[in-house]
């Protein structure tokens, strides 16, 4: 299968000598839903910026669907749609004009551009706002506008740099649904996000980057298998004043008063329920706690910080 994105030995050194990328390699398969995770300043946006031609690379190779950005930049760009982290449209222009103008930059004639703009503005719930200047939109609408603009030329690879930053949970969920549908229809998606719950919910493969180096590049499943424990949230019939003491299990109450129990890999849940039964605590529902990825992520980044300090790398 063709790779949607191939990055080899990518290096970026800024004018002030700061080495943002220290020779990273990354392959994203066609049709994948891929997350690039890392703390602030890790090199995520620099990597995506180079792929999208917004940042000049210092060394290395980048290919988009086989088109090298050094030799076939135009072909590479035709396959790419970009949703940046910050709003980057003319705030005075109308929503419809912003989307059709972007299509025009890709050589799409106005009639076809208008049809495509209508399709995506409708799908993203912005059709009623098509004649509104962008500055009048809410933050969530502006994010959706950038997604419509990125899709108007029907790219095969969609890159989203923190697409749901500052978006409320309801809208975030609807954007997830939209992106999952795009991916199902064949669009390869790469996203960076600070919401690890988002990466866990959407992505099949994940790379973790820190200090300009890729720490891990693997499937979500494999990554999560590294967890030595799993966390369950238990809702009880009667509210608890304090977490019960359970032999062999660590438990505490969360902010909403639900019982949270850590279960080690291979440990039987039966033992936990037997003890709860003896304590007269009736469990009415149970769910796995999301953000398992967060735990792994924090652990990896902390380990890398320790290694970086021992190597003498600048943070």
């Amino acid at each position: 299968m063709t790779n949607a994105l191939e990055i080899e030995g990518l290096v970026k050194t800024y004018g002030d000598g700061f080495e943002a990328l220290k020779g990273i390699d990354l392959h994203v398969a066609e049709g994948d839903f891929f997350a690039l995770l890392g703390p602030n300043g890790a090199g995520k946006s620099t990597t995506l910026g180079i792929v999208c031609s917004l940042v000049n690379k210092s060394a290395g190779k980048v290919r988009v669907f086989g088109s090298d950005i050094d030799t076939h930049l135009s072909d590479a760009k035709l396959n790419l749609g970009v949703v940046p982290q910050e709003f980057n449209f003319n705030q005075f222009e109308k929503v419809f004009d912003i989307v059709t103008t972007q299509a025009g930059y890709y050589g799409i004639p106005l009639k076809k551009a208008s049809e495509s703009a209508e399709k995506y503005l409708r799908q993203l719930g912005l059709w009623d706002k098509r004649n509104t200047p962008a500055m009048m939109l809410s933050g969530g609408m502006k994010r959706r506008l950038m997604i419509a603009r990125a899709l108007v030329h029907e790219p095969k690879l969609l890159i989203l740099d923190e697409p749901t930053a500052g978006v409320d949970i309801e809208l975030r969920r609807s954007m997830w649904t939209f992106l999952e549908e795009m991916n199902r229809r064949g669009t390869t998606i790469i996203l960076t996000t600070h919401y690890l719950e988002e990466a866990e919910a959407l992505c099949r493969n994940i790379a973790i980057i820190d200090h300009g180096r890729i720490l891990r590049n693997t499937s979500k499943r494999e990554l999560l298998q590294q967890l030595s424990s799993e966390t369950f949230v238990l809702d009880t019939a009667e509210p608890l004043d304090k977490a019960p003491v359970l032999d062999g299990f660590f438990s505490h109450l969360d902010d909403e008063g639900a019982m949270v129990v850590d279960v080690q890999k291979g440990q039987s849940l039966n033992g936990m329920f037997i003890q709860l039964e003896k304590l007269g605590i009736r469990v009415v529902s149970m769910r796995t706690k999301a953000n398992r990825l967060e735990e792994l992520f924090i652990r990896m980044v902390e380990d890398n910080n320790t290694s970086a300090a021992s190597r003498g790398d600048a943070a």
Binding site: C52, S53, L54, L73, S74, D75, K77, L78, L80, V82, P84, E86, F87, N88, F89, N90, Q91, T101, Q102, Y105, Y106, G107, R149
Partner: peptide, 18 residues
């Protein structure tokens, strides 16, 4: 310059326009 300032120049930079 206002395109640079508002960063909407990026609309052109990511596109294949020579």
């Amino acid at each position: 310059f206002s395109m640079k300032f508002q960063r909407s120049i990026e609309e052109l930079l990511v596109s294949p326009v020579p």
